[in-house]
Amino acid sequence: MNALVLTDVKKMVVENVDTPEIKDDEVLIQTKYAGICGTDHALYNGLPGSAAAVPPIVLGHENSGIVAKVGSKVTDVKVGDRVTVDPNIYCGQCRYCRTGRKELCDNLSAVGVTRNGGLEEYFTAPSTQVYQVPDNVPLKAAAATEPISCAVHGIKLLKLTPYQKALVIGDGFMGQLFVQILQAYGVHQVDFAGIEENRLALNKEKFGVTNTFNTAKGDKIPSDYDVVIEAVGLPQTQEEAVNATTKGAQVLMFGVGKPNQEFKMNTYEVYQKQLTIQGSFINPDAFEDSLALLSSGKLNILPLISHEPSLDQVTQYLDGTAKGVSKAVVKVGE
C-alpha cells in the first residue's frame, strides 16, 4: 500500500509499505480522507505537536475511512462501518488523567503523531478511539471531526449564555469553525475579524455573522465583547483579543503561538474588568458532540474545504508552496 512517510525534518516520501497488522483491541481502517492542519505543519518542520513525532512516521491525525478489519476483542464497530478516529490516547495513570484533566496527560500518545496515521491507505487505531460516522455526514466532512472537537473543547471551557456578544479573531479554518459553533451553542451575536475579505464575506452571507472587521484594511475592532476567541496565535492578535473585551468577559486563547512567544497586556485592565483568559489544549471527550453538530446541520464545513490534494501533493501544503488555502483535505483512497 502507499504511505506518505515523514522521513526527516522537511522531508516526506511516498513509499510502498506493508499493510499494518492489528492487535486484538485494534481496528484496521481503509483511509478515505485525511486533513492537513497546523500541527502537521509543525511536525513537518521538526516542532512538537500535541506530542513529539519521531521519524519515520506517517502523519494524518485528522482522518476518516471504512473499517477493513477488527481485532478479536473489538465489539463496538464492524467491518464496513464508516468511521473517524480521535487521535489522542491518554495513559489513564498520571496525575492529570486521575484528576479529570486527561488532555494534560504526561504520557500522551496520538495517532498520526506518535504512531502512524491517516496519510496512508490503511492505518490502525485502538477501538476506544474509533467513532462511527452518522449516515448523513460525508466522509470528507468527517475527516475534520478532530479539529471540530478541539474547538468544541475550547467552547466547553467557557461559560456561554444567549445574551452574550462574541468575536472570533482569525479567518483561517479554525476561526471559521468557531463562528458556527458559537451560534450552535446559543450565542446570539457572533462577529468576525480577519484579513481575507472573501472569507469574511462568506461567513457573513452564509453562516450568520453579524459584523465583520478586515484588520488588513484598517478596520477597528470595538471593545464591547463578552466572549473573544483568538484563533491565530500571533502576539498582535492576542493583544487585540484582550483589548476587545468588555467587563466580565472571557478570552479563549486558542491560536497556537511559537514556544518562546509572548504578548503584552494591561494587568490592571485584567483586574478592573475581571477578565477570564483561558487556554485550550486538544480535545477530550468532544467527538460525540462534534459528530452531532455535523449530523444536525448546525455545522456545515464542506464550503470551508478549499483544496483536495493527493498524497504526492501534500508537501506543497506543509512547506508554504500552496497559496489561498482555507482547509486542505487529502483524498487518500478511492
Rank of each mutant, 00 (worst) to 15 (best):
M1I: 02
N2W: 03
N2K: 15
L4D: 00
T7K: 15
V13C: 11
T19G: 03
T19V: 12
P20T: 09
I22P: 12
K23P: 06
D24L: 02
D24Y: 09
D24G: 14
D25Y: 15
I29E: 01
K32Y: 01
D40C: 07
L43G: 00
Y44Q: 00
G46L: 03
P48I: 00
P48A: 08
S50Y: 04
V54R: 11
P56W: 01
V58F: 11
L59K: 13
L59V: 09
G60Q: 04
N63E: 00
I66R: 08
A68E: 02
V70A: 02
S72Q: 13
S72P: 09
V74A: 12
V77M: 02
V79A: 05
G80H: 06
V83G: 01
T84G: 14
V85W: 00
D86K: 12
D86C: 09
P87D: 00
N88I: 03
G92S: 05
R95G: 13
R98Q: 14
T99A: 14
G100K: 13
R101M: 11
K102T: 02
E103R: 12
S109F: 04
V111K: 07
V113R: 00
V113A: 02
T114I: 05
R115Q: 09
N116K: 05
G118C: 07
G118M: 09
L119F: 15
L119S: 06
L119C: 10
E121I: 14
Q132M: 11
Q132D: 01
K140I: 13
A141W: 06
A141E: 02
A142P: 06
A143E: 05
A144E: 00
T145L: 09
H153P: 10
H153F: 10
K156V: 06
L158F: 04
L160A: 03
T161Q: 15
Q164P: 15
K165I: 04
K165L: 05
A166H: 10
V168K: 06
D171P: 14
G172K: 06
G175I: 01
F178T: 00
A184G: 10
V187P: 08
A201C: 05
A201V: 09
L202Q: 00
N203A: 05
K204L: 03
E205W: 07
E205Q: 14
G208C: 10
N211G: 08
N211Q: 02
I221E: 05
D224R: 13
V227I: 15
V228H: 09
A231I: 01
L234H: 11
L234Y: 05
P235K: 04
T237S: 07
K247D: 13
A249G: 04
A249N: 00
A249I: 01
V256L: 03
N260E: 13
M265Q: 06
E269T: 13
L275I: 06
I277L: 12
G279C: 12
F281S: 12
F281W: 14
F281M: 07
P284Q: 07
D285G: 05
F287E: 00
F287T: 01
L293C: 13
S296A: 15
K298S: 14
I301H: 15
I305E: 11
S306Q: 01
E308V: 15
P309N: 07
Q313R: 15
D319L: 15
K323Q: 14
K323S: 10
G324P: 08
G324F: 08
V325K: 09
V330N: 05
K331E: 03
